[in-house]
Amino acid sequence: MSLELHQISIAYGRQRVLEDLSAETMPPGTLVGLLGANGAGKSTLLRALAGLQPARGRAVLDGTELFTAPAAHRLRQVGYLPQSLPQASPLLAYESVLAALRATRPDLRDGAAQAAIQGIFDRLGIAGLALRRMGQLSGGQRQMVGLAQVLVRQPRLLLLDEPTSALDLRWQLAVLENVAAQIRQDGAIALIAIHDINLAARFCQRLLVLGQGSVLAQGTPADSLTPDLLNQAYGIAGRVESCSQGFPVVLADRATPLPTDRRN
């Protein structure tokens, strides 16, 4: 299992978002943090890999071309959590996960489906939400249920678009710990678009930093995070220091004037 991205270009009409994006091969069990400023193309890349956005180039997951693979084949391999939260519908959280599982695995026996759903609710620590209606849940709780809908299918490639954006600190850690554990166990790969650089540096083995339509940096957090990169990618003056456990920590000092082409 590996993921390769070769010369991927994506445009909305005439507006190019990503141009010739390539990334080093990602081995199984890798958690990849997708970083970059707003509008850098993180969500667009994830949507393209999920088959929701037309793209040129090649994305190869364990020999399968994702951009040209039949939907049914891609469906078995890829799990995508969109940035927008699951809708506040009258569905119970349990049945929203059941529906997600049944929509993709109609042949699964009832007992196996129940065990899978029980397992994911227990692991994420949200069993108390299972029999509540989605409309009664907070944004963060719905985000957790959305993650359960993706994880229960055990995809080979997880595409998570800001999965911690509505969560408090405890749940942010719980989400990343669970995703890391699942991809380690399944030998899967996860691409996570995330704004919290320190959280990414703590959990991700690799970072892919997007900006100006392409890859600004890639590699381990320790190698790729530099003050120059922070300035280039986010337009900030900042420092990269090391915490007592050896993880890089970003300290943002101030915003720097944006280059003319990034003002809007």
Binding site: P82, Q87, S89, L91, A99, A103
Partner: peptide
């Protein structure tokens, strides 16, 4: 019924599950 129930979670969500 399963496709329609999944659709209640949002169009992008349903599409990402391969529901046309």
């Amino acid at each position: 019924v399963w496709a329609m129930t999944t659709l209640r979670g949002g169009e992008d969500h349903a599409r990402s599950f391969g529901i046309p």
